[in-house]
Amino acid sequence: MDTTTLTKNMEAVSTQPVKVCARDVKVFYGAKRALHGVNVDVYQNEVLALIGPSGCGKSTFLRTLNRMNDTIDICRVEGKILLDGEDIYDPKLDVVQLRARVGMVFQKPNPFPKSIYDNITYGPKLHGLATRKDEFDEIVERSLKRAGLWNEVKDRLQEPGTGLSGGQQQRLCIARAVAVSPEVILMDEPCSALDPIATAHIEELIDELRESFTIAIVTHNMQQAARVSQRTAFFHLGDLVEVGNTEEIFTNPRDERTQGYITGRYG
């Protein structure tokens, strides 16, 4: 990892405060090292896109940000990740609370086999965000509106979430994440299983969500990264190659690996 490159990148920061700060993050699966020390900051109310060829470690990195890697037995994380200056790998820190603050949307839409209504209220119920029926109703309506799904499903809230189309399911999953009122939302290739129209919906949605949340999104699709993100990080073989303003990365990459990737020489 070239420190100077990073420092240069860090200069091009927004005026927003840092929300998530990763320092020298290394991830091991058993004896195999998947990330070789990643340094990156995510600023409040921005969309950071993580791009790179398959197996480069971008999803792995994303999952370290809300400790979803804890569910994998052989996975080990080194380094420091700070959320609002607080180390999220501190043994004293509570992982359940962390995940309430850092929500996640997965690659494949995974609505629970429950009604649409229950899918949304699942998180708020867990965290005690509401107690009365009307409060829940309001959360459901607000979340679904934010996810741009309200008009499509408002008449069938009691139908199972698994009955929706793929794009709707993914928006339901976003609404489900939003309903918990997290501070950060992580999205792991949220559009890879969707058709172009559904993808466009979601991309629009991400742009709107930026006003209230900090978002990190992993994507395979470079156009998508260009469209939705303010800054982009390029990963290659477990290294963070470079990070910077999206426009700059796509028009004037500093590293030839980045250039090779965005011009489609490999991927």
């Binding site: 405060p17 840092v18 320092r23 609002d84 965290h127 965000l129 009122s181 997290p182 501070e183």
Partner: peptide
């Protein structure tokens, strides 16, 4: 880089 971290955002009034 690690040291001059920008002032962390005030711990939000997050419910969580």
């Amino acid at each position: 880089i690690a040291e001059p971290m920008q002032a962390a955002a005030p711990v939000s009034a997050s419910f969580h």
